[in-house]
């Protein structure tokens, strides 16, 4: 039989009947672990519910189902476990907002002491990672504890009513960064991009991923699970509620974030970047911003093209800095 080089949708979609079994995603299988099952109370079109199932399903598969997880306070924790229901199909523990990395470290140490091979995954939103849990996280990195810590970044405290977090991007409107100020929305600061901070700890593995590129995300989880020690995965998960976007646009927004250069996809081992996912079809940041009500004040009756240009400049800097142009140029 002749081998074709073409597979219609290749690896851009979730599945593809023309691919070999080893090229199929975990998500494409009817037997996927469904770490978070149906009936959870995430908002319609929730990117975090999607991202958490993507990550945990492949981690569970990689660990041969021998895996426990710790969750910081946040949307993911709240929507998956309203008493007495649970959507979790993996052993799951919630302690406090700020201590998830420390609890995960302790679990890993305890399991090791018991002689168990069980893998540990810590999870938090951007609030629990970038702000409140940051000290514990840095400690976990510094001690190189055997934990994969995953941040589902929806760029704000969405669970408590869309307040600004350290991961909220400039100019975005939140409940605490009004569009009425000048400049409107969140301030243009220095940013706090935890993947780069994690890399500064020289830990075995750091990667960014998005819910719009499943093959890329699953490959990164797979790589992280091959390694031991402190590993960090930062997943962009659009939030229809907090971003004031259409619930159907969740995956589209994640895609536009990477295709515009706003959110770079890369991996690093021991502090060195080892691979980037090049932009396939570059788009201006406009395409990304306009779908989101949190940026509506940049385009409305009193548009702020100056601020859009600053955002574009930040995206352009990412493209240069991480070498994202690759195939697209």
């Amino acid at each position: 039989m002749s081998e074709s080089r073409l597979y219609q949708i290749g690896t851009f979609g979730v599945g593809n009947r023309l691919l070999t079994p080893e090229d199929q995603t975990v998500q494409a299988g009817s037997d996927r672990p469904r770490s978070i099952t149906r009936g959870h109370r995430a908002c319609r079109g929730c990117g975090e519910a999607l991202g958490a199932r993507f990550v945990l399903d492949s981690a569970v598969r990689a660990a041969g189902r021998d895996l426990v997880t710790v969750n910081a306070t946040g949307c993911l924790e709240v929507f998956s476990s309203p008493y007495p229901e649970s959507a979790w199909q993996v052993p799951w523990l919630h302690s406090l907002f700020g201590n998830a990395p420390a609890v995960a470290s302790g679990m890993a140490a305890g399991l090791k002491a018991l002689g168990r091979e069980t893998r540990v995954v810590g999870q938090a939103g951007d609030g629990g990672t970038v702000d409140i849990g940051f000290a514990c996280l840095s400690g976990m990195f510094e001690r190189d504890d055997d934990v994969l810590f995953v941040c589902y970044d929806n760029q704000g405290y969405m669970n408590t009513g869309v307040q600004r977090s350290g991961a909220t991007p400039p100019a975005a409107r939140t409940a605490t960064t009004s569009e009425l100020g000048d400049p409107p929305g969140a301030r243009f600061g220095q940013g706090k991009f935890v993947p780069l901070i994690a890399m500064a700890h020289d830990i075995p593995y750091v990667a960014t991923a998005s819910v719009a590129d499943l093959h890329d995300l699953e490959r990164k989880v797979g790589r992280a699970m091959q390694l031991h020690g402190a590993r960090y995965l930062h997943v962009l998960v659009p939030c229809p509620l907090g971003w004031a976007a259409d619930s159907a646009d969740t995956v589209r927004l994640a895609r536009l974030a990477t295709e515009s250069g706003m959110f770079p996809l890369f991996e690093a081992e021991r502090g060195e970047i080892t691979a980037v996912t090049p932009i396939r079809r570059q788009v201006p940041v406009d395409d990304y911003l306009r779908l989101q009500g949190r940026y509506a004040h940049l385009f409305g009756e009193h548009p702020r093209p100056d601020l859009v240009r600053r955002i574009q400049a930040a995206a352009d800097r990412n493209i240069t800095r991480f070498g994202l142009r690759g195939a697209a140029s």
Binding site: S4, Y7, V14, G15, N16, I36, T37, C46
Partner: peptide, 27 residues
Amino acid sequence: LDEARRCLSCGTCFACDNCFGMCPDDA
């Protein structure tokens, strides 16, 4: 075979699993 696989299968399900994989509610 390559040429056949360039078909976009417009307007019909070709079992790509996108709906199945991308449902946040596993529904």
